[in-house]
């Protein structure tokens, strides 16, 4: 058995990422296309988007980390990242309309920057008032993550613990590779990105602080359809049918 060292882990993870397109096919390609669009959807921005860009930096970074965590077989890590991604998406959307940077932080008497906690509350309230569909969607996504993945619980450990013989336990660094689960995570990842990009586009329709790339809408239509198709595919699987909520 290979020893769990940072070097070995990193090598194995690199292989997983390089093989992801082969392993997860269209689900990975779709998620990757959404991630790429997120990184390149703005052609130009006005100087009044400083706060937005600060939050966008976080959105973009956490987006890549989330995708990596999914294909590197770290399920709960990927979902914790996803929650952070949702939070930064809300703040960035709010910042596109509210560029005043002092809304988000203050400077203490010792010269250190301190986060204004109420900024998040304001952002969520603003979203709820102005973009109800997105607000509901984000709440639902966050509740889903909070109910299972974001806090330590015994279920997480079950994916990383094996028994060789009675009394002899082995912990594994990677979760079991369950294609259905990973495809589900990849779909959800793409879905959240789509929601965010559409939200930014909507806000920008009135604010006009950003110039989006020429083929933005065309790509969104294609990706939106892909995402819908993937959901149909996942919902037609036997495993989903077994556990779907009874209406």
């Amino acid at each position: 058995m290979i020893e769990v060292t940072p070097e070995n882990v990193s090598g194995a993870e690199n292989q997983m990422v390089m093989q992801a397109a082969q392993d997860y096919g269209d689900y990975y390609r779709h998620a990757r296309a959404m991630q790429l669009l997120l990184w390149g959807f703005i052609k130009e921005a006005t100087p009044r988007t400083v706060s937005y860009n600060l939050f966008l930096g976080e959105v973009r970074k956490v987006s890549v980390l989330t995708l990596l965590a999914i294909v590197r077989l770290h399920a709960s890590q990927s979902q914790v990242n996803l929650r952070m991604l949702l939070e930064s998406m809300v703040l960035s959307a709010y910042a596109l309309e509210h560029d005043d940077i002092t809304e988000y932080y203050e400077v203490g008497s010792d010269g250190a920057a301190l986060v204004k906690e109420q900024a998040s509350d304001k952002a969520y309230k603003w979203l709820e008032k102005n973009y109800q569909e997105e607000s509901k969607f984000i709440k639902m996504m966050k509740n889903n993550i909070n109910s299972l993945w974001s806090h330590s619980n015994v279920l997480h450990g079950s994916l990383n613990t094996k028994v060789v013989k009675p009394g002899s336990f082995v912990q594994t660094f990677f979760d079991n590779k369950d294609i259905y689960h990973i495809n589900g995570f990849l779909w959800n990842y793409g879905n959240i990105h789509w929601m965010y990009l559409r939200l930014v586009e909507k806000i920008n329709e009135s604010k006009k602080e950003l110039i989006l790339i020429e083929d933005f809408r065309k790509r969104m239509i294609t990706l939106g359809q892909e995402n819908e198709n993937q959901k149909r595919q996942l919902m037609s699987s036997e495993r989903y049918k077994k556990h779907r909520p009874q209406s």
Partner: peptide, 20 residues
């Protein structure tokens, strides 16, 4: 947005996760 349908899917998805 297909919010309610997404929620439905995620519930089923989580059910499978719990079973595993």
């Amino acid at each position: 947005y297909s919010g309610s349908e997404d929620s439905q899917f995620l519930q089923g998805f989580k059910g499978d996760w719990n079973r595993v």
